[in-house]
Design a protein around this nucleic acid. Sequence first.
DNA 1: TAGATTGTTAATCGATTAACAATC
DNA 2: TAGATTGTTAATCGATTAACAATC
Lengths: 214, 214
Amino acid sequence: MSQKTKLNYVPSIRRFPSYLHIIRAFQRTGEPYISGTWIANELNLEPIQVRKDLSITGIVGKPKKGYPVDQLIAAIEHYLAWDIEQRAMIVGAGNLGSALTGYQEFRNHGLHIVAAFDSDPLKVGKTIHQIQVYQMNQLKEIVERMKITLAILTVPSPYAQSSCDAIIAAGIKAIWNFTNVKLKVPDDVIVQREDLSSGYAILSVMMRTKAKLS
Amino acid sequence: MSQKTKLNYVPSIRRFPSYLHIIRAFQRTGEPYISGTWIANELNLEPIQVRKDLSITGIVGKPKKGYPVDQLIAAIEHYLAWDIEQRAMIVGAGNLGSALTGYQEFRNHGLHIVAAFDSDPLKVGKTIHQIQVYQMNQLKEIVERMKITLAILTVPSPYAQSSCDAIIAAGIKAIWNFTNVKLKVPDDVIVQREDLSSGYAILSVMMRTKAKLS
DNA sequence: TAGATTGTTAATCGATTAACAATC
DNA sequence: TAGATTGTTAATCGATTAACAATC
């Protein structure tokens, strides 16, 4: 039922962050309207695709002028729920966890990393990019105290499933999974897997065939 | 012409690394055959999709038994060109560059990071994960000496285009772009952009709608 | 006004899924 | 043998692209 009534627009949603980036840069010029054609040129897309995508957000443009810049930004941010603050934790304070904690761009998306966890006693008590690293057994307590709603999983793959279980036990319903493990989770838990290898697979095939894909 | 005759299979190529991961784990059991049904169950996919994907590699399975494990791994690796060594450099030895340098999984994909570059004099001369960090103005020299064919771009976005230009001037034809900048490159240069924000966009919309997409 | 741009409806394209004969 | 699994052909589904009237 809710599986059937899916109105997903996954490819469109994936393009929104790029649109937002371009439009925000354009906003600094002070121009009040931005055309879909202009966005398309910046991103090497077809204007019709940009218009179709933007229509998902409910924004209405003006023929000849384009879309009102401020409203367009607000519409995309609202559609992505980037206009509300998300409080997240890093689970696995290694290289990647640390890199993500320091990734400034997330601030523009309403994503705030407020705590980190690691099983290594040497890391616990330290900070990464001004964020405190806690013991894994404090996870549930800190999640509740800091009102954390999202876990970013960056542990080595052998620890992925057990860390995931601990995250779920703490009441978290959304996991951004940077490991290459297909996590087993209950139905009400959302997992988004970020797979560097699949990007490299595309790149490899492009290099082999000397053709532009993707 | 070469644009029209595209036989891309992009979504299939993106799934291959997951297949490979599952099949390699299965290989350790010593069983000589693996069925598409089994792979599908592990990854929550439809068996028909797995069979269709695997057929791209040219592998032929045996009814009732499945696919010969060793041959299947070889076929996928060959299709992805992961059976030949790629020599790569990190451009931008910050947090993300360092994390990617230490990412062990890449070794399983034939990807060897052999040098790093940074414009910060404090980083030059140091190492990240046993890889030497060089000055940006040594880029061309080192690329030639070390026979580097791939650049992994992890500089802050304001430096993305100028770094890209330097990379291209050094003769590199493939760039794995981790910045949020749409790079301007000549026709014969391949760019694969890795966009963390688009993954987070999907996650955000899933959290907002409480529906599983992607 | 003239024409650039939007938004809608229809057509095309490509990916996924279904059906089923072949077969080990 | 019986039946699980493959591989092929066709159907369905969804995303992209095209066409074009509306309009500021």
